[in-house]
């Protein structure tokens, strides 16, 4: 089924031209609306414009994480959709304190995510244990367990801060930067 002279064709022609205008590595074929670029460039472009975080809210921060999906903050406009299953998610927002009892479950969910995967440590507890860091049951930062891409300080961070964190991650992806997990793997294997 080829592209005919329909509204669809015009849309794809305009779409391809818009995308290509943003990136010198891409070129748009004017007649068919086909985008010509190296595969990696197109993948980076897609990853930079769509981010599906998994809901992993354990405590107070989870309420603020819910709030970013609400009408005032509305993350849908950035291509950010919350997913409930780790298998559909690109990134894991660790929103809240991780106790020693929760830690194995968190690691299990992280391992169920498909590559490339990213981790956002939202709030003081996920970064360092926060107000509970001296306790006997609190993991002092999720980066002791898995590689973290973005740290968002606050107790809890404002919804704007979480949006900023997600956008920062998306910008990095668009620029083709390595995820923390990839960097960690390359480092441990001696490639970096």
């Amino acid at each position: 089924m080829g592209l005919s002279d329909s509204a669809d064709t015009r849309l794809s022609q305009e779409g391809a031209a818009t995308v290509a205008a943003d990136d010198p590595a891409m070129a748009a074929d004017d007649r068919s609306g086909v985008l010509v670029a190296p595969l990696q460039t197109i993948m980076n472009w897609a990853r930079g414009h769509s981010m599906w975080p998994m809901t992993f809210g354990t405590a107070c921060c989870a309420i603020e994480m819910m709030t970013v999906g609400s009408p005032r903050y509305d993350t849908d406009r950035f291509g950010i959709f919350f997913r409930n299953s780790p298998r559909q998610a690109d990134c894991m927002i660790v929103a809240g304190t991780i106790s020693l009892k929760m830690a194995p479950r968190m690691k299990l969910l992280y391992e169920q995510m498909a590559e490339p995967k990213y981790v956002i440590a939202m709030g003081a507890c996920a970064i360092s244990g926060g107000p509970f860091m001296h306790g006997y049951n609190v993991v002092n930062g999720v980066d002791q367990i898995m590689p973290v891409d973005i740290y968002i300080p606050g107790c809890p961070p404002r919804p704007e801060a979480l949006i900023n964190g997600l956008l920062t991650l998306m910008k990095r992806n668009a620029a083709g930067e390595l995820s923390a997990a990839q960097r960690y793997r390359l480092e441990t294997e001696g490639h970096l």
Binding site: K101, P104, M106, I145
Partner: peptide, 22 residues
């Protein structure tokens, strides 16, 4: 009388905790 480590749970203990559900 419970003795708490002054800096909270050591990193090694957290990493050991993920190996099973306790």
């Amino acid at each position: 009388g419970f003795e708490m480590s002054p800096d909270g749970v050591p990193a090694a203990a957290s990493q050991a905790a993920i190996s099973d559900h306790g």
